[in-house]
């Protein structure tokens, strides 16, 4: 059986908020290393990979592989019943047809308990190869969100060009064109506001802004986001958490 308690409901709330629009139904794969998820969006353009490591829970018990097929809109409804500072305990049997959630508030001795019905989801797992990316760009999450939002007003797609000087996001659409360049820099007082580019070779790739805007729903998970690019492979957009991550992979647009 699975038994996993997380100190802060807000962590789980933010993770689900980050992915629910992209992958509304998905399997949570639970085993002794933690709770993982891998799912493609409906159009098979993007892939979400999430991991909440066992050491982010206390206690954490899961002695065999359990797949929890969850409708994330249903889970969101139940998680709205938890306050951000509540502790959440997740419980499921070995062959579960429901997931039990207990929310505890130690301050006012309030305990609430919910069960949500699980679904049978036939999900394909893709093999994500280990990739040495040509460029890895780490930038403030809020900056990435702003760039995606701004450029999506002009165009459906954005070219991301990484050089050792920095990164340039550019787009062109019916009303005109636009670009935002972030030069590599280090903010000593607030390192999370720095822009860093690790580069082995320059890269220039084009991606759908609709998906990037969607990925930015994970912005509350981390102060920085890392974009990893190589020519002709999917972009990796990674939000790291203390005990896990949410990664989005996005297939590039290819010139005909």
């Amino acid at each position: 059986m699975l038994e996993a308690r997380i100190e802060q409901a807000s962590v789980l709330k933010r993770v689900i908020e980050a992915i629910k629009d992209l992958v509304p139904d998905c399997n949570f794969d639970c085993n002794d290393t933690g709770i993982a998820l891998q799912a493609m969006d409906n159009s098979h353009v993007a892939l979400v990979a999430m991991l909440l490591r066992a050491d982010g829970f206390s206690p954490y018990r899961c002695d065999r592989n359990i797949a929890l097929g969850i409708n994330l809109n249903s889970l969101t409804k139940v998680l709205r019943c938890a306050q951000n500072e509540d502790m959440i305990t997740l419980k499921a049997d070995d062959a579960p047809d429901s997931l039990n959630l207990v929310f505890e508030n130690t301050e006012n001795e309030r305990i609430s308990e919910y069960d949500i019905k699980l679904m049978d989801i036939d999900q394909e797992h893709l093999g994500i190869p280990d990739t040495e990316y040509s460029a890895s760009i780490t930038l403030p999450t809020a900056e990435f969100q702003r760039i995606c939002r701004d450029l999506s007003q002009l165009s459906e797609s954005v070219a991301i060009e990484a050089t050792k000087e920095g990164v340039k996001f550019s787009c062109s659409g019916d009303i005109g064109n636009g670009s935002v360049t972030l030069r590599t820099h280090q903010n000593v007082d607030k390192p999370e506001l720095s822009t860093k580019v690790d580069l082995t070779e320059p890269v220039n790739l084009t991606f759908s802004l609709k998906y990037l805007v969607n990925f930015c729903k994970a912005s509350s998970l981390s102060q920085t986001v890392t974009l990893s690019l190589s020519n002709e492979v999917p972009l990796l957009v990674e939000y790291k958490m203390d005990n896990g991550y949410v990664r989005f992979y996005l297939a590039p647009k290819i010139d005909e």
Binding site: V45, H125, L126, P234, Y249, A251, K253, I254, D255, E256
Partner: peptide, 14 residues
């Protein structure tokens, strides 16, 4: 214009 790629053509089924 550019064609949107499919993620499955990059990552094979396990």
């Amino acid at each position: 214009g550019a064609q949107q790629g499919n993620i499955m053509s990059f990552f094979g089924k396990k």
